[in-house]
Amino acid sequence: MTDSFGFRSLHPFTILLYYAGGITFGMLLFHPLILLAGWAAAVVVNLHLDGGREWRRWTVPMAVGCLLILLMNPILSHRGRTVLYYFGDMPITLESVVYGMTLALSMLNLLTLFITYRLVMSEQKFLFLFSRLSPKAALVAMMALGMVPRLRRRLQELMLIQRSRGITVTEGSLAQRARNGTRIVGTLLSWTLEDALQTADSMQARGYGTGRRSGYAGFRFRSRDMWTVSALTACAVLLLGVWASGYGFMKVYPNLGSFRLITGDQVALAGYITYLLLPLGWEWRDRKSWRTLKYKM
C-alpha cells in the first residue's frame, strides 16, 4: 500500500542498517538529555509514518515498564554518594535515581524506535533479509507464518464445537480448564500434522528438494538507498568517533556529573538526531510531490 512511499520505500538492507544503528547508539549513548532528544526524534518518525496511531496504542505498556525501572533502581541499587532519603535504613541515592531515569529513557527510546520498526520493516522485507542469511530457516518461518492464521481459525472453531461437548476452558475448576485447553491444543496439533503431510506432498510435487533454490522476493537497491546508506554511515562514523573519544555519556557513579552538554556531547546529540530523522527526508520529498500533483489536478 504505502510500500513505495517515503521511508517505507527503502531497501530492507537500508532499513536494517538504520535500526541496527539506531538501537546500538540508543544503548551506547547514556545521557538523559541525548536519550530524551532521541526519543523525541523517534516520536516524530512515528508521527510521520502513521500519525502516531500505533505509538499511542503502546503508550500504556511502555509507560508502565519505564515507571517500574524508574522506581526499582533506587530501591535495588544503593550506590552513590548523595543520599536523598532513608527508607527505613535503606538509603535512596540521587545517583541511583538519575541512573534509573537514564535507563528508563534508554528503554523508552528503544521501544519507541521498535514501534516504527514494525511499521517500516514488513514481514516480507524481514523474510527477504532473513532468507539471505538462511534460506531454509526463512522458509520454515514463512511456512509457519502462513499457518498461524489458519490454525488460529481452526482453534476457534474447535473451541466452539468442543464447548458444546463440554470440553471448555471457561467452566470448571482451574485444573479442569487447563486440562481441556491442552486437549483442544493437542487435537489441533494432531489434526494439523495429519494435514501437513499433504502440504509436504504439495511441496515435493512442485519440485522442492530437486536442487538449489533461488529467491523470488526482490527489492531494488535504488539511488535513494545509496544516498541513505552513505549518509547513515557518515553519521554513524561521526557518532562512533565522538563516543570513542569519551563523549555522549554522563558520569553517574560514584557521584553525579553535570547534565550540561559540552561540545562533544552536543555533537553526539546532533549526530544522533540527524541519524534518526534522516529517512524522513524521503518522506518529505514524496509528500511534496503529492502536494504538487494535487494542485495540478
Binding site: V140, R152, M159, V185, L188, L189, L193, L197
Partner: peptide, 25 residues
Amino acid sequence: KARELMLIAVMAAVASISRIPFAAL
C-alpha cells in the same frame, strides 16, 4: 526434506498459538 521442514513449521505455529485457549486463565 519437505516433511522435515513441515514438521518444524507445524510445531512452531502450534507453539505460538497454543496460548490462545489459556488467555482466560
